[in-house]
Design a protein around this nucleic acid. Structure first.
Length: 197
DNA sequence: CCCTGATTCGC
DNA sequence: GCGAATCAGG
């Protein structure tokens, strides 16, 4: 594969959107994240000064070379990135999303708010619930920073408490949760018989 | 161990 | 110019 205009465009776009090199590489296909990073540098866009506020990389924050180029005050441009992808979003019992690879490391779950779906005694199959409580024993109990695309993002406990952690077990291909949690997060849309109210 | 970006350097 | 290998860091 070579860097055609199209591919470079996509690269630029994704990079400015804060996508990681590996994500971009996946998207492009035929290249590794190293290739992407190399290209990014050659293009001279190592400094993601396009949109995302500098606070975008907490974990992958650089060390030296990235000089804290003080932006011109005249450049407010916090370009409101319509970034729907957050761990919280991924954690929501959404109707199934195509990609589970949204989370830009950076602004992530604002502990305390929209977090999800605790397995309330809704109309989830008892088996599933049992599975979940069982899994919570073996859960890895990861912290926010330890989450990756391959770790179950199911939150357990109250975010406002010390007793808060994420499952962390291996996710099911493409999903944000492990098998057990996928079971309660993505319901077949059945169980709801006809609840006469 | 997983992942991130940065650099180097032979091709 | 390219990108694997390597490095530095979370």
């Amino acid at each position: 594969m070579s860097w055609t205009d199209e591919r470079v465009e996509l690269l630029k776009k994704m990079w400015s959107e804060g996508q990681s090199a590996s994500q971009i590489a996946k998207e492009l296909g035929g290249v590794t994240r190293n290739a992407v990073i190399g290209k990014v540098h050659r293009l001279g866009l190592s400094n993601r000064t396009g949109a995302e506020p500098a606070a975008a990389e907490p974990a992958a924050a650089p060390t030296k070379s990235a000089e804290p180029k003080p932006k011109t005050p005249a450049e407010p441009a916090p370009a409101p990135e319509p970034e729907p992808a957050t761990a919280a979003a991924a954690a929501a019992p959404a109707p199934e999303t195509k990609s589970a690879a949204p989370a830009p490391r950076g602004k992530i779950v604002p502990a305390g708010q929209p977090l999800p779906p605790q397995p309330s005694a809704n109309e989830i199959s008892p088996e599933a619930l049992a599975k979940v409580s069982e899994v919570e024993k073996t859960a890895k109990r990861l912290s926010l920073m330890e989450l990756t695309e391959r770790t179950c993002k199911w939150p357990v406990g109250d975010p406002a408490t010390e007793e808060f952690w994420f499952c962390g077990l291996p996710v099911q291909q493409g999903k944000p949760y492990c098998e057990a949690h996928v079971g309660v997060a993505f319901q077949p849309m059945s169980s709801r018989r006809d609840r006469r109210r």
